[in-house]
Simulated assay, not measured.
Amino acid sequence: MREVILFGAAAQSGNLLSTLMLPVLFLAIFYFFIIRPQQKKDKKIKEMRNSAKVGDEVLTIGGIYGKIVKIKDDVITIEVGSDKTRFNITKWAIGSIQASSETTEE
């Protein structure tokens, strides 16, 4: 009778281990396929926005193309259109940096 009790306790601990393993497996899959790639993407975008400099051609998240003329902390002044209209945007509004006009002229 004593051996049966020990065997039952071992079965319960094995059952507990398999019960906990499934959620841990799902969390690991969730982390490696969703959270980690998003963190890498966010880091890359942040580096791109911090590397913006005067003279760069940018595309805002609103779809406006412009040239950076001034950077002050988190506010960027861009020139837009043939009449050189200037307005301020925040750094997080930069969708992508197209090219530096200084580099394309050389």
Rank of each mutant, 00 (worst) to 15 (best):
M1V: 06
R2T: 11
E3F: 08
A11S: 05
S13R: 10
S13Q: 07
S13H: 10
G14W: 07
N15E: 11
L16Y: 12
L16S: 13
L16A: 14
S18L: 11
L20P: 14
L20V: 14
M21T: 13
L22H: 07
L22E: 14
P23H: 10
L25N: 13
L25S: 13
I29S: 11
F30A: 02
Y31D: 12
I34F: 12
I34D: 05
R36W: 04
R36L: 08
P37H: 05
Q38P: 00
K41G: 06
K43R: 02
K44R: 08
K46C: 06
K46T: 06
E47D: 13
S51I: 09
A52E: 02
K53D: 05
V54Y: 02
D56E: 08
D56C: 10
D56Y: 02
D56R: 03
D56Q: 07
E57Y: 07
E57K: 11
V58S: 08
L59S: 09
L59M: 09
T60G: 10
T60R: 00
G62S: 03
G62Q: 01
I64Q: 10
K67P: 00
V69P: 00
K70Q: 08
K70G: 12
K70L: 08
K70R: 07
K72L: 00
I76G: 04
T77A: 00
I78A: 05
I78N: 10
E79R: 01
E79N: 14
E79C: 07
G81V: 05
S82Y: 03
T85K: 10
R86H: 01
R86I: 02
R86L: 04
F87S: 09
F87A: 04
F87T: 06
N88S: 15
I89K: 00
I89P: 08
T90K: 02
T90G: 13
T90W: 01
I97F: 03
S100Q: 04
S101W: 04
E102R: 02
E105W: 09
